Computed example of a mutant assay.
Amino acid sequence: MTSSVTKVGLIALMAIGSVLMWIGAPVGWIYVAAQLSESSQVSMGAIVIILIGIPSTMFFIGKMLGRLNEKYAELTGSTNEVQIRAPWMRSMRDERDLHRPRTVLDVVMVLSVGTAVTLFGIWFMFFAEGGGI
């Protein structure tokens, strides 16, 4: 019972982390830059804060997501080892599949990006001023 609760908890943390990575980091750094700005004009300092803050935060969150995925792999007994042959070592008749198994993090990230793109499209088409329909 504890193992399944831990697995679900790790998956939930990965989902929350992916949402923070795609939405929380950019919105958070834009908010910080806006609060530090003294006028409504965009300053070079605010742009620098955003350009440094967003990628570094996304990198940190990505590293944490990778660690959560490793913990999940340890808990389930699966491995993340991937065997890849260099292209020049492969035969032309060799099969094209690289046999890289999908991890939970892969699925969570694809779902979070798909959801974000869908929600952005809905917002743009129906709620944004001057958008779509």
Rank of each mutant, 00 (worst) to 15 (best):
S40R: 06
V8Y: 07
V27R: 10
M89F: 13
L105R: 07
V110L: 15
D94Q: 15
I61A: 05
I50K: 01
V8E: 10
E95H: 15
M89N: 08
S18M: 14
M64K: 12
L20K: 03
W29D: 01
V19S: 03
M1Y: 04
M44N: 03
S4K: 04
G66Y: 06
V27L: 13
G45A: 04
A128T: 01
T2K: 08
V117Q: 08
A33L: 07
K63G: 05
K71G: 02
I49Q: 05
I23Q: 06
M92N: 12
Q35S: 05
G24V: 04
V113S: 13
W123S: 11
I84S: 01
Q83C: 00
N69Y: 04
G45R: 05
V117N: 04
V19M: 09
M109F: 12
M64R: 11
T76W: 04
V48S: 07
V113P: 06
A33I: 07
V107R: 15
V110A: 12
M64G: 02
A116P: 01
I84A: 01
T2M: 06
R100P: 00
R85H: 00
V27Q: 12
L51G: 02
S4H: 03
G62K: 03
V82A: 07
L13K: 09
Y72L: 15
I50V: 15
P26S: 12
T76I: 04
A34N: 12
F124E: 11
A12Q: 03
A34L: 06
A46Y: 01
R90A: 10
Q35K: 10
G17P: 09
T115E: 09
N69F: 08
S39I: 01
F126I: 08
Y31P: 00
S78N: 11
G132P: 11
V8F: 06
I11C: 02
S3A: 11
S112E: 14
V82D: 04
F127I: 14
I122Y: 13
L68F: 12
Q41V: 08
M44P: 00
R85A: 08
S37N: 12
K71Y: 06
M14V: 12
G77T: 02
F120K: 05
A116F: 15
V110T: 14
G53S: 02
T57C: 14
M1K: 02
L98G: 06
S43M: 01
V104Y: 06
D106G: 05
G121W: 13
V107Q: 14
Q83N: 00
G28W: 10
V82S: 08
P55K: 14
P55R: 08
S78P: 00
L105Y: 09
